[in-house]
Design a protein around this nucleic acid. Structure first.
Lengths: 258, 258
DNA sequence: CGTACGTTTGATCTTTCTCAATAATGGTGG
DNA sequence: CCACCATTATTGAGAAAGATCAAACGTACG
């Protein structure tokens, strides 16, 4: 069980959640060279315009991707939890189109670009995993466009809190709908396209409605069904069921129900 | 030059814009079986929850992806022009997370899922092309999150008009910053997360500033530089330069400048 | 030539932003 | 352990962007 102590363990687990891997695949991934670094909160990992030569995998802590408008407004376009690959993008595109930054102090495994590319070239299941992962990320972006474009602040916030809970729980990093929200209200505002002031008021509203409880950054969701409803949240877009090579044509209605 | 008459010609051209293909690749793609259908405007190609067995490629006309909130508000999450593959998503994910709909009357080539999967399995350059395509789409989604989350209506609209112009011109479907905008103001509103009324007023503002000219749906951009500026538009996120296997380390600054 | 759909306009309302001040909180050096 | 500082959270009041509602106007098309 050596690889269970590997910093890439969570990464493998997440990959496996999406596509079936074999023991040899796990071993090959575990054998990838990498450098483990501990980064302080708010450290840039990649900047827009960079062409880094590594693929970063988040081992512990949190990170986000962020873009700035010409006027300096910031939008956080994705949030990342331990086990997430942060840089598949840079494996195949020449120039980064966004900034990648740690949210909290974080451990990041930097895998040399060429090593991972080589593995993807020789191991079709790993390549498949990367593609599926990318497709799921794209699906999350679509939901965020919807969230920011068409939901009011209360719904938008509730939706985000639900998404974060489900993603953490899928990675077994939280349970009982309770977790540490690793960001300031200003960062929350940049995720949701709101102002910090309004985020504060929106959180108070949700708390007053009994949908969430806050103590410092600790968030509890005493009424999951209620928050889910208010947040118009349906986890389908997270594609949490494993994407097997052969799709379960026979259980289509099962999928539909989920 | 038989394949130049193939309905998939634009598709191949776009794929080639992103990754290098060889003559054999082009031939293999041209040999893919498909059914060509002409669909009326507003026809659903795929619905959320579906698991279709084909991959749709847009041959002519326009299409979009759309999601609905529980309250019935609609958000268009992407726009598609001739040559775009609409369904790489469904090749690898079990269940669709959004609706795919024609915008105008359109010709769509339906390629059987298994045929394309098989080609991707046996031809690494095609597989690579699919991955790069998916990554670029993800980049566009990120820009849309920024656009909807952090730009005001005027900027947002100008940005969209610029993006559409550049994408059409990259596919040689328009030039001289002039094109037919294939959608109603209500649909534009659903793209931008605004109301139709406000879209109308925003278009009038841009026209009054001399940044665009409208005659019916025909859009002309007499002051490209001005519109680009107002729209805070930088085409980097479209990743239009070809993504060659080996990245041009030596011309990094060229890329930076672009 | 009438009907349906899309566009335009005006008036009013609401959500969210802005600005500004105050209050917690956490970390740091003494 | 305490005082101080920087950051973050909270509150209030007023402003603004964009939404809503409702009507009128165009245009295409059968």
């Amino acid at each position: 069980m050596t690889e269970h102590r590997s910093p890439l363990q969570l990464f493998v687990r997440k990959l496996e959640q999406h596509v079936p891997l074999e023991e040899t695949d796990r071993r090959e991934i575990a054998k990838l060279p990498f450098k483990l670094r501990t980064l302080e909160a708010s450290t840039y990992i990649t900047r827009e315009g960079d062409s880094p030569d590594y693929c970063a995998v988040l081992v512990s802590g949190f990170a986000y991707r962020q873009k700035l408008t010409g006027q300096g407004a910031r939008q956080i376009v994705s949030l990342h939890i331990p086990g997430d690959a942060l840089d598949f993008q840079q494996l195949f595109l020449n120039v980064s189109d966004h900034n990648l930054q740690t949210l909290t102090r974080a451990e990041v495994a930097f895998i040399p670009r060429e090593s991972l590319l080589e593995l993807a070239r020789t191991n079709p299941r790993v390549a498949h995993g990367i593609l599926v992962w990318t497709l799921i990320e794209a699906s999350i972006f679509r939901e965020w466009v919807l969230n920011v474009g068409r939901r009011d602040s209360r719904t938008r916030m509730a939706h985000l809190l639900c998404e974060f809970a489900v993603r953490l729980e899928a990675q077994r990093l939280a349970n009982e709908h309770q977790y540490e929200l690793p960001m300031t209200q200003e960062q929350l505002a940049d995720v949701l396209g709101l102002t910090p002031v309004h985020v504060n008021r929106t959180l108070q509203t949700l708390a007053a409605e009994g949908l969430i409880t806050r103590r410092r950054r600790r968030l509890t969701i005493p009424d999951w069904e209620g928050l889910r409803e208010v947040g118009d949240f349906n986890a389908r877009y997270l594609h949490l069921q494993r994407q097997d090579g052969a799709r379960p044509e026979l259980s289509d209605d099962l999928n539909r129900a989920a």
